[in-house]
Simulated scan of single mutants.
Amino acid sequence: MSAWVVVGSAALGCAAAGALLPPVAYRLAVPYGAPARPDCARCGGPLPPGAAGWLRRPACGHRTGVPRWSTAVLAGLAGGLLGAALGPVAVLPLFLALAVLGVLLAVVDVACHRLPDQVVLPALAAAPTLFAVVALVTGRWDDWLRALLGGLLVGLLLTGLVLLPRAGFGFGDAKVGALLGFHLGWLGWDAVVLCLVLPWVVNVPVLLVLLGARRIGWRSSVPFGPALLVGALLAVLAVAA
Rank of each mutant, 00 (worst) to 15 (best):
M1N: 10
M1K: 06
S2E: 14
V6G: 02
V6F: 04
V7F: 03
S9V: 07
A11V: 04
C14M: 12
G18R: 14
P23I: 08
V24F: 13
A25C: 07
Y26E: 07
L28W: 04
L28G: 01
A29D: 05
V30I: 04
G33R: 06
G33W: 00
G33H: 08
A34F: 10
P35Q: 03
D39E: 14
C40H: 13
R42W: 09
P46I: 09
P49Q: 10
P49N: 09
G50Y: 07
G53I: 12
L55W: 15
R56A: 14
R57P: 00
P58D: 09
A59G: 06
G61Y: 11
H62Q: 04
G65M: 04
V66Q: 00
R68H: 01
W69Q: 07
V73A: 15
A75Y: 06
A75T: 02
L77R: 00
L77G: 15
A78P: 01
G83I: 03
A84L: 11
L86G: 04
G87Q: 13
G87F: 12
L92Y: 11
L94C: 02
L96P: 03
V100F: 06
V103Y: 07
V108E: 02
V108W: 03
D109M: 01
H113R: 13
D117F: 04
Q118H: 08
V119Q: 08
V119T: 06
L121I: 15
P122E: 03
L124K: 05
P128K: 12
T129K: 01
T129P: 00
L130R: 07
F131L: 08
F131E: 08
A132G: 11
V133A: 13
V133I: 14
L136H: 03
V137L: 15
T138W: 05
T138M: 06
G139N: 09
G139C: 09
D142I: 01
L145W: 13
G150I: 00
G151N: 06
G151W: 06
L152H: 02
T159D: 07
T159W: 14
G160E: 05
L161F: 15
L163S: 02
P165L: 12
P165F: 11
R166T: 01
A167L: 12
A167S: 15
G168P: 02
G170R: 08
F171P: 01
A178D: 02
L180V: 03
G181Q: 03
F182G: 00
L184F: 04
L184Q: 04
G185K: 10
W186H: 05
L187V: 07
G188A: 05
G188H: 06
V193N: 05
L196K: 01
V201C: 09
V204P: 01
V204C: 07
P205I: 03
P205T: 09
L207G: 11
L208I: 15
V209E: 10
R215N: 04
I216K: 05
I216A: 04
I216R: 06
W218V: 14
R219H: 13
R219M: 01
S220Q: 03
S221T: 03
S221V: 07
V222R: 01
P226H: 10
L229D: 08
G231D: 05
L233Q: 03
V236N: 10
L237S: 04
V239Y: 05
V239G: 03
A241Y: 12
